[in-house]
Structures are given as C-alpha cells and as structure tokens.
Amino acid sequence: METASVTHTVTDDDTARALGSGDLEVLATPRALAWCEQATCAALKLDPAQTSVGTRVDLEHLAASPVGTEVTATATVVHTDGRLVRFQVAAHDTGGTLLATGEIRRVIVDRERFLARITPVGD
C-alpha cells in the first residue's frame, strides 16, 4: 500500500480564528483537512497527464493543537477501484497524540479532459 506523510508547524495563519472556523488560536479543522489531503496527493504516483480530485471526506478532529505544534498528516491507500482511490488519513503531533482521523476519497482524472469541461466564470 502506498503511504505518504507531510509535516507542518501550526502558525497563526492555520488557526480557527484566522480561517473563520471558530475564534480560538488552535489548529483549524479546515487546515487539518487540507494537510490530510496534501498527504493523499503525495501518496499517489501519477503521470504528468493525470491529476486527482477529492470527492468525499470524513474527518474527525479529535484534539486541539496550539500554535507551534508540529503536526504530521499521513495518508495510506486502503482501496482502489478503477479511478477511485480511498485513503485512511490520520494526523498526529510529535508526542503521538492522535489529532484527526478519517477517510478521504479521490478520483484520478485526465488533467486536460477535466479542465476542458470547466466553463470559466463570466463566459
């Protein structure tokens, strides 16, 4: 199974207050999710003509992380079905505390075909 991890340190820009998902100076759930999604993308080995798009997210944010906390998000491929890829994701701090856990689904697409179907706003 393919696995990848990304590590970030929580900054003021990553907090619930900064992202508008609350008013506390702790890691925002949207940022925790973004880091988990970054790990899913890193776990995929795609050719340059391909990319992936997120289609479903189920994430439990279990513990608060103040500014300065180092967080590692890990994604492991747990199932593939054609172009669909399911990942188990987890985020931990350096002390081993489980901060978030869940599943993310992505679909592999042809980059040019996908973009050709998008109509720019204002057209």
Rank of each mutant, 00 (worst) to 15 (best):
V107H: 11
V26W: 01
V57N: 13
H8I: 05
A100I: 11
D123Q: 15
T74Y: 07
A42G: 06
V89D: 01
G82V: 13
T97L: 13
G54D: 01
V121K: 15
V26P: 02
A91L: 09
H8T: 08
Q38V: 08
V89E: 09
V85A: 06
C36H: 07
R105L: 15
F87H: 02
D23E: 09
T119L: 14
V10P: 04
L24Y: 09
A64I: 07
A100E: 09
G22C: 03
Q50L: 04
H79M: 04
A73S: 07
H92N: 11
T3E: 10
T101I: 13
G54C: 00
S21C: 11
D47Q: 01
A39D: 05
G68S: 04
T69M: 01
A28L: 02
A91E: 00
W35M: 05
L27S: 07
T29S: 10
L44W: 08
G95R: 03
L59E: 03
P66I: 02
A34Y: 13
H8K: 11
T29W: 05
S5K: 01
L84P: 07
P30G: 03
D12M: 14
L84A: 14
L19C: 06
T51A: 11
H92D: 11
K45R: 13
D12E: 15
V6C: 05
A100H: 05
A39R: 11
V121M: 15
D58Q: 12
A64Y: 00
G22N: 04
G54S: 00
L84D: 13
R117N: 15
T119D: 12
L27T: 06
G102S: 02
A39C: 02
G82T: 02
V53P: 07
L59R: 00
V78E: 14
G122H: 09
A73C: 03
D93N: 10
Q88W: 15
G54P: 07
R117W: 10
L98K: 06
L44H: 00
G82D: 03
T51H: 06
D81P: 08
L33E: 10
G122T: 11
S65K: 01
E37V: 04
S5P: 01
A16M: 04
A42C: 05
F87V: 03
S21I: 03
R56F: 06
V77L: 10
L99G: 02
D23R: 10
A75H: 06
L98R: 11
V77Q: 11
V121S: 14
